[in-house]
Design a protein around this nucleic acid. Structure first.
Length: 422
DNA sequence: TCTGGGGTCCTAGGACCC
DNA sequence: TCTGGGGTCCTAGGACCC
């Protein structure tokens, strides 16, 4: 039987989440900023119309925003993940086979389903009714084609947010209108190379005769993408949530940091939150990387330093990892430098249950495990960061993020519910 | 004054070994 | 004077995604 995939994607997801609690902003230009109120990461169509681009630094378009009375929000990730979970819960009712692709997208396997367009519309209505988040639905016989269908649904309002591309005629026509840079997985570099082969549209790509050349230039994946365009599924649905192979935590500082102490404090916090994620997926890591840098946007001499250490034995103990991180930091730190960003990476991640321990290490391991579990319990209950090691610091955080436009924690903090009329 | 963060996959090329 | 070849493993970096 021919495979059928749907891609369901939330419209301007972060903005839609904010607007849910500010219905007065429906139909108005709204944007959500990245960490530190740096760049735009989500825009309503009204904001796009004004000319604010994805990734535009806020300070550069501030005047434009003022002029058009744009409402901006700092990002509020606990709100977005909460609403994302609700959207995914609704979607999971429409197919037992679902891949949560990102915070605002999911693929569904609809193989065997009849009347696909109507079914897609049904999915759309259900999500909107149950969560208040508007979505678009694209349907095709491969994930790449479902992505393209979704792209069309978004671009042409006449389709009412649902596009099905499983019939040959409308497929051919659609592909001839899709530019190569709008194909999933084709970025700037590949677009350039495709153009030099005179491949401009998805149809050109699909019908290109020389497979060997495609493989040579765009590697194995480039050829698989070509198959996907012609309806042969090469990217299977990934139903099980994979465990992370590396966990990164890094931040740009709210204000430049000069001292080793501040740097240590920030790094200790990053390690803490990365270790929390590590334990959540029941893993341990075998290597930690620390890096720090100056602002690449300043025309002063740049400093970028990074180093890794392999752990003596795999661990997920925040205290252990902080110790290793500090060893690297001591080594990399140079005084007199204006640090603007630092971060850490945990790698060589593997399942905790596979950890080999010597008898010698056993006692330590058990007490560490108990302590970390207790810490995670408190932080789940009282909010992340309620309980942490002393090196994370308590006050005077010069490095902390700027978030001047943050919405309240409507769904995750009881205190913020006051004043909301339901 | 002010420019995000977190991932994955793939390949080329170096190190090393026999 | 003439200076192999093949395999594996590891890493850095490119490319791309949301």
């Amino acid at each position: 039987m021919n495979k059928v995939f749907a891609l369901v994607d939330c419209n301007a997801f972060f903005c839609s989440c904010e607007i849910l609690f500010r219905p007065d902003l429906i139909g108005k230009p709204v944007g959500v900023l990245s960490n530190n109120d740096g760049c735009f990461v989500s825009r309503t169509k009204e904001l796009k119309k004004i000319g604010v681009k994805m990734g535009d630094p806020y300070f550069k378009v501030k005047d434009l925003c003022k002029k058009h009375n744009v409402t901006v929000f700092s990002s509020n990730f606990s709100l977005y993940t909460n609403l994302s979970d609700r959207v995914m819960a609704v979607l999971s009712q429409f197919s037992p086979l679902m891949e949560v692709y990102s915070v605002d997208e999911a693929f569904l396997d609809l193989t065997g389903q009849s009347d696909l367009r109507n079914f897609g519309a049904k999915i759309k209505r259900a999500v909107e009714r149950n969560t208040g988040i508007p979505v678009g639905v694209g349907i095709g016989s491969t994930k790449t084609l479902a992505k393209i269908a979704n792209h069309i649904a978004k671009k042409y309002p006449a389709y009412n947010g649902v596009v099905e591309l499983t019939h040959k005629d409308n497929l051919d026509k659609a592909l001839s209108h899709i530019k190569v840079n709008d194909i999933w997985g084709v970025g700037k570099a590949s677009t350039h190379k495709l153009h030099s082969l005179k491949i401009y549209t998805a149809k050109d790509y699909r019908d290109y005769k020389n497979d060997r050349l495609i493989k040579k230039i765009f590697t194995k994946v480039g050829l698989q993408r070509k198959d996907e365009l012609s309806g042969v599924s090469r990217f299977p649905l990934e139903v099980t949530t994979k465990k992370k192979k590396e966990i990164i935590c890094s931040r740009t500082f709210g204000a430049p940091v000069f001292t080793k102490e501040s740097l240590k404090e920030s790094v200790a916090n990053y390690v803490s939150s990365a270790c929390e994620k590590l334990r959540k997926q029941s893993s341990v890591c075998g290597e930690i990387t620390v890096f720090m840098r100056t602002s690449p946007f300043k025309s002063v001499s740049q400093y970028y330093a990074m180093d890794s250490i392999k752990l003596l034995s795999h661990s997920c103990d925040t205290r252990v990892l902080i110790k290793y991180a500090f060893i690297i930091l001591e080594d990399l730190y140079q005084s007199g430098i204006e640090y603007k960003k630092a971060g850490i990476k945990l790698s060589e991640i593997r399942d905790k249950s596979h950890t080999q321990l010597s008898l010698f290490e056993m006692t330590d391991f058990i007490s560490s495990d108990h302590l970390m579990k207790a810490m995670d319990r408190v932080n789940t209950r009282e909010g992340s960061g309620s309980l942490k090691t002393a090196v994370c610091g308590v006050t005077n955080k010069a490095w902390a993020m700027n978030r001047n436009h943050k919405s309240k924690r409507f769904l995750t903090g009881w205190n913020d519910l006051k004043g909301i009329s339901c």
